[in-house]
């Protein structure tokens, strides 16, 4: 049940693109055609499913305060969490390179469709963001981390598929010249993100929904509160 909940939460409520704006650059750059969008989306699911659990292990057994206690009591006080950026990105870059080599060797047809996207992925913020959110949301077990990775990947895939389909159709509409291309894509993404916000109440039962709403309005009114983390805190 926990897995199902986290899975749907990471696809819809915490959608990588619409709730946290991660992976926007490749989302905007590679969404002109549905076929390329599908390729990149599949590659993102694949890489997230591998790197999030891997980085979870790193975080648990190397980086967290007290994570080194398996080495012996004298290491229990070490806190290496300031190294997490460099460790995570190194893991991601090597994994992407490794996946590229393995795929090229064993499945040339898959390599032809995914291959060109793999180097792009090393610098896709959705991948690093997946690992960083996994760390900051304190996901409890390796299984949940895997579910989270796959779920967020699917969420990203859905988003790029949707925008690519819309962009293919919008070519036939008469958009004001200055808005053509990038401008209208931004505005459509904004509208889609507003649509996705309505998933926010999906996983809360009828009882705490009222309480949640109240919390949300209080947060909006209180200008001193950190409104930036709004979408993050509401969901937690």
């Amino acid at each position: 049940m926990e897995h199902v909940e986290l899975f749907f939460k990471s696809i819809f409520i915490d959608n990588m693109v619409f709730a946290t704006f991660l992976g926007m650059c490749s989302y905007l750059a590679v969404s002109k055609k549905v076929s390329t969008a599908v390729g990149l989306g599949a590659a993102v699911i694949f890489v997230l499913a591998i790197t999030v659990p891997l980085n979870w292990l790193l975080d648990q057994y190397l980086l967290q305060p007290g994570a080194l206690s398996w080495l012996g009591a004298e290491y229990a006080d070490y806190d290496l969490s300031f190294l997490s950026f460099i460790m995570f990105i190194a893991t991601i870059a090597t994994m992407v390179q490794l996946v590229e080599i393995v795929v090229e060797k064993f499945s040339p047809s898959l390599y032809n469709s995914l291959g060109i996207f793999l180097p792009l992925i090393a610098v896709n913020c959705a991948i690093l963001g997946g690992s960083l959110f996994m760390q900051s949301r304190e996901i409890a077990t390796l299984g949940l981390a895997t579910t989270y990775g796959i779920g967020s990947g699917i969420g990203w895939f859905l988003a790029i598929l949707a925008i690519a389909a819309i962009r293919e159709k919008i070519r036939y509409s008469s958009v004001p010249p200055a808005l053509r291309g990038l401008g209208i894509t931004f505005i459509i993404t904004g509208l889609m993100a507003i649509g996705f916000m309505s998933f926010g109440g999906m996983l809360t039962g009828g009882d705490d929904e009222g309480a949640k709403k109240e919390e949300q309005t209080v947060q909006v009114q209180d200008s001193e509160e950190n409104k930036v983390a709004n979408n993050i805190t509401i969901n937690e």
Partner: peptide, 25 residues
């Protein structure tokens, strides 16, 4: 304050900029 509005504000900035400079359309 909601995050989707950032996208729309950037969209409008792009609109203004490209209306002023037609070469960017």
């Amino acid at each position: 304050l909601l995050s989707p509005m950032a996208l729309i504000v950037v969209g409008i900035i792009i609109w203004v900029q490209r209306t002023r400079n037609k070469a960017l359309v």
